[in-house]
Design a protein around this nucleic acid. Structure first.
Lengths: 226, 226
DNA sequence: GCAAGAACTGAACAACTATTCACGCCCGAT
DNA sequence: ATCGGGCGTGAATAGTTGTTCAGTTCTTGC
């Protein structure tokens, strides 16, 4: 044995791997999942097509990791926002708002992660991604129920429905297309969050209050690209 | 000119066209959109692959018509149910329930029509399909708002969100998988309808009443395959 | 019956990309 | 400096399906 990976090489390999993943993410953010093709991604990452296969067994693995990464980021953002809230209802509002803002600020990426047709099978990682996010929302609903702020209900189903509503309204094919305008963007976030909160049983007046409270900071964040 | 299409031939051509479309629909209902491939569909319709192209310029056209057909059926069912209701709120409840029941009773087909990845571009017809259904729901919400039963709101966005919630909760990847059981099925329909009605601002108690009122007949219909 | 033309057939074709692999280069150890 | 082996390359390969089209069968009008 006359060859051992030196620390420097290990770092370079890791960097290259990240570069490929980052290239895939950029491609997805710009052109959706259709744009995540091996050859273009390789070019963007400054490597040859074959090199991609030194790091990812297949395109499905690459995309799966991409989905996982984006999903982890979003989950962390949701937790951060919700944990900073003063109570269970606020936490739920914050969580929902965060999803809405994230989704809106990277529409193409969100659509790609969630539902865009892909030629390889990534249903497993999409399922995992949804499960994580939905689970988090469900536990926030649950907390609000336990605190007596919401009626008892099937929280898992409710969380799934909420996410469906957010996604369809914000990045689905019928989503308003003029959301470049920051004011419209904030309106959309508020409207959809309000719907979501009412759906799980928050009283209308209270829901409005929570929504207003929660959309100021996140909307600002969205504009700086967080 | 020594050849003219006789009435009999015209009828045979129309029948064949319907047979191909029906074959495509069956294939989609059984195996989703992936199962809608020219060769298998042709076999099912008892014609050769090339014949399909005598009736549909391309696979995209075939699938687009399939989407249109299913969509028209659903729209008609929604209108029928809503028009039979005694008032605007009941009509909305009926419309939502109908969507839920239809979606559930043909899950694979619904998923295929709505969101399943397809190799050809059918986004235009999917868009049209969603637009029709969402428009109908929106106008029902609007009627309820005008009647003073609901707060003023962006009805188009609300309708879109409602449909997203229904679809995600009932046929999305996180949908409960034990909905064969009629009782569970009815529960799911009720739960999701309740969420939807509350989302647009129906008071909780009233919403429960509307839901119970609306799920008896449609659930029965679903079981006989309507 | 027969000619003309339409409808049907299904094997061959085309196009698109993920994936492979034989070769060359660079890095680490001596 | 140089040897050994992993790393990178990118042109060639492969597999999948939609689509075509030359030949065959069927239908019509005389």
């Amino acid at each position: 044995m006359v060859y051992r990976r030196t620390h420097q090489v290990v770092k370079r390999l890791a960097a290259r791997r990240s570069a490929i993943l980052a290239a895939a993410r950029e491609a997805a953010a710009e052109g959706g999942m259709v744009a995540v093709q091996i050859a273009p991604v390789a070019v963007r990452a400054n490597v040859a097509a074959g090199t991609v296969y030194r790091y990812f067994p297949s395109k499905a693995d690459l995309i799966s990791e991409l989905i996982g990464e984006v999903s982890r980021d979003e989950l962390a953002a949701i937790r951060r926002a919700a944990d900073a809230a003063p109570g269970p209802s606020s936490a739920l509002a914050a969580a929902v708002t965060t999803v809405a803002v994230h989704t809106l600020s990277q529409r193409k990426l969100a659509w790609g992660i969630l539902a865009e047709p892909v030629d390889v099978d990534v249903s497993a990682s999409r399922l995992a991604s949804r499960r994580e996010i939905a689970g988090e929302i469900a536990s926030r609903i649950d907390a609000a129920v336990r605190a007596g702020h919401l009626p008892a209900q099937d929280t898992a189903l409710a969380a799934t429905a909420l996410l469906g509503a957010l996604h369809e309204a914000l990045v689905g094919p019928l989503a308003p297309d003029n959301l470049e305008d920051p004011a419209k963007l904030r309106d959309a976030v508020q409207t959809v969050t309000l719907l979501a909160l009412r759906a799980v049983g928050v009283m209308d007046a209270r829901a409005r209050g929570l929504v207003v409270q929660q959309t100021v900071l996140p909307a600002a964040k969205a504009l700086v690209g967080a």
